[in-house]
Design a protein around this nucleic acid. Structure first.
Length: 285
DNA sequence: CGGCAGGCGGTTA
DNA sequence: TAACCGCCTGCC
């Protein structure tokens, strides 16, 4: 177990980061501390963030200390995972300048950061996410980790397993995956393991779209969360509601929404999607 | 019980 | 290419 400390971190909030829809293996510690416990790739960790000025107001002007207690991963790994090298204040300023309507969402989710997640983990996680709900997505992912992932060991009061390697899922029996309640996604998961094992890692949207069970929405999630393509703008049912409510788009006009995001937010469209998604879903609109 | 949840594949007009 | 439909599952 190693302990890492990052000081003077800005634009950072654990709830915003872990509840904005980009990841599924992190949950709040049950001691009311505000910490999160979970896993990234092959490492389990407990994450703590302490603002330097707890009652400093807007939040995004404050600095804080990020503490990571992990079963593995060096400073570079976690620095990259939490995207600590990116200036989110600058991103928010740019988004607000191009679209004042987005300001409330930027202020509400001021501590959002887009995690730099493992590509294969992102592919499988978002295949599972289709036509599904978050509690079941979490459960499904933990199931495949515990059956097909390498044991990490005991930490934070439970046993942990790494996210499965591609070849482990490629070798899985579809019936066994069905037994984990993955439903019709079972075949997609095995096929994705086979594709990823036998081909170079996907480098473009067209190739990702050619995976069985990956359509436009899931592909954009993978581009954004697994390949750092910040211009990707995943349009799910929530975003359709948002685009209708904020900008008047017909909810069927996905093409119009995508073109709008591309023009309005350009290379920051992925960030805009995260701020808007978190703001709307958290406020139950 | 039908409806639905962070869609997709397949078929049809 | 747009409009439907069925789909594993679990929860309401």
């Amino acid at each position: 177990m190693n302990k890492l400390i990052f000081r003077n971190i800005r634009d950072f909030d654990l709830t915003h980061i872990f509840e904005c829809g980009q990841c599924f293996r992190w949950i709040p510690a049950d001691d009311g501390s505000g910490d999160y416990i979970g896993a990234a790739g092959s490492y389990a960790a407990r994450i703590s963030f302490a603002p330097d000025h707890p009652h400093g107001g807007a939040g995004d002007e404050c600095t804080g200390t990020l503490t990571i207690e992990a079963t593995g991963g060096d400073e570079d790994f976690w620095y990259d995972y939490f995207d600590l090298g990116t200036d989110y204040k600058a991103i928010k300023n740019e988004l607000a300048a191009n679209d004042p309507d987005i300001l409330p969402a930027l202020e509400y989710g001021y501590g959002i950061r887009i995690l730099n997640q493992d590509l294969f983990e992102t592919i499988i996680s978002f295949i599972i996410s289709q036509n599904n709900n978050i509690p079941r997505i979490r459960k499904n992912i933990e199931s495949i980790c515990s059956v097909y992932g390498k044991p990490i060991g005991e930490a934070f009061g439970r046993e942990w397993y790494a996210f499965p390697e591609p070849d482990a899922l490629a070798a899985a029996e579809v019936d066994d995956l069905m037994g984990l309640r993955l439903g019709y996604r079972a075949g997609y998961i095995k096929a994705a393991g086979e594709r990823f094992t036998n081909c170079p890692a996907p480098g473009c949207r067209e190739e990702i779209l050619s995976y069985l069970g990956i359509g436009p929405k899931v592909a954009n999630c993978i581009m954004l969360f697994g390949l750092r393509c910040t211009e990707a703008f995943p349009i799910d049912t929530w975003v359709k509601h948002i685009m209708n409510d904020m900008y008047g788009f017909d909810e069927k006009d996905v093409r119009g929404m995508a073109d709008f995001a591309s023009e309005k937010f350009a290379s920051y469209a992925g960030y805009a999607q995260q701020y808007l998604f978190f703001f709307y879903r958290d406020n139950g609109k």
